[in-house]
């Protein structure tokens, strides 16, 4: 069943000018494709794509079985990128992630065997189950886009993109990500359960994973890199810079959120705003772009949980004067 992006997007009717074109080879086609398997989650899909274009990493916080893996796979397939999935467990070692140097008898040298991080899209499932050492190995890779091992650095692919998931339910033996590491994730979203109609559709059509296999690539990594460069030319007016600044200030003022948002979060927010505006075919950022992405950027950083943070962030938006 074909689903139109504009009609299903959360606030598509609010900005009728923000049409997303549907031709092959443009972001609209990519979004269309992914939404075909992730029905009714246009907002999340867009945020994920914007996050990818803004060269950030994505944290999905949700209960199992709502399509976290499907989203990562669909992104990979549609963008023509390779992807790897790593299930994090409490005995995961850093080497299991980044790889090891093995002594090669033939060449009498240590040979680096790259681990699963050497990929474009890495799906880190249940990241909060891994011990801190393994988590920080991943987070270094995310931040530096390189892996250091035995005095050697190994660069990761240019379009390295981590989709980490974590289960929000309190569980024994989980290692919640510390604030500093949550800050590394540009966007925190939750997919949420499908509505009744969509769920019935899912039950009718069976496994989503199977339908992912039928997807065609709608773009290639080179195109993606071009897009990412394009988003950087989107104009952000000084009024909006001020607006973002006062939003950051507001998170720091009343002390509800510890130290509030870091400048890094502010930079990330503006990058994401650009990508978001670009996805909506605009060459400038509007206040509603800031408001659309702010909860996703601020939520997990402010409270450590996506769901509660989103509410706090939206409340904050209603307190700060908009330009």
């Amino acid at each position: 069943m074909p689903v139109s992006v504009t009609s299903e997007a959360g606030d598509g009717t609010r900005h009728p000018q923000d049409k997303i074109a549907g031709a092959i080879g443009d972001p609209g086609a990519v979004l269309n494709q992914i939404e075909r398997v992730l029905i009714g989650k246009g907002e999340t899909v867009r945020l994920a794509l914007a996050c990818l274009l803004a060269r950030g990493h994505l944290l999905i916080e949700d209960v199992p079985g709502v399509g976290k893996t499907t989203l990562a796979r669909a992104l990979g397939v549609t963008l023509g990128m390779d992807w790897t999935r790593v299930q994090f467990t409490n005995d995961l070692l850093p080497a299991d992630l980044v790889g090891v140097s093995i002594f090669d008898r033939d060449t009498t040298r240590f040979q680096f065997k790259p681990g699963p991080v050497f990929t474009s899209i890495l799906l880190a499932d249940e990241i909060n189950r891994a011990p801190p050492k393994a988590q920080s190995a991943l987070l270094e890779a995310m931040e530096e886009r390189q892996v250091s091992l035995d005095g050697q650095t190994h660069a990761l692919p240019d379009d390295f993109f981590v989709v980490a998931t974590q289960n929000p339910a309190e569980q024994l033996g989980a290692f919640p990500l510390p604030e500093s590491q949550l800050d590394r994730f540009l966007v925190g979203v939750s997919i949420g359960l499908p509505d009744a109609a969509t769920e019935r559709l899912l039950l009718e059509h069976g496994d989503r994973r199977a339908s992912v296999e039928t997807l065609q690539a709608a773009a290639n990594p080179a195109q993606l890199r071009q897009w990412a460069r394009d988003t950087e030319s989107v104009h952000v007016d000084t009024k909006l810079i001020d607006y973002v600044q006062s939003l950051l200030q507001a998170t720091r003022e009343d002390g509800h959120f510890g130290h509030g948002l870091s400048p890094r979060a502010g930079i990330a927010l503006i990058r994401l705003c650009r990508a978001w505006a670009w996805l909506h075919s605009r060459d400038h950022v509007l206040p509603e772009d800031v408001q659309a992405v702010f909860p996703a950027v601020a939520g997990h950083r402010l409270t450590g949980k996506v769901a509660t943070g989103r509410i706090a962030a939206e409340e904050l938006l209603s307190r700060v004067d908009c330009p």
């Binding site: 609010r14 900005h15 509007l286 206040p287 509603e288 408001q291 938006l317 209603s318 307190r319 700060v320 004067d321 908009c322």
Partner: peptide, 10 residues
């Protein structure tokens, strides 16, 4: 009047 936090379009 505009309420606090309301974007111009909204």
């Amino acid at each position: 009047a505009r309420v606090t936090g309301e974007t111009p379009s909204d």
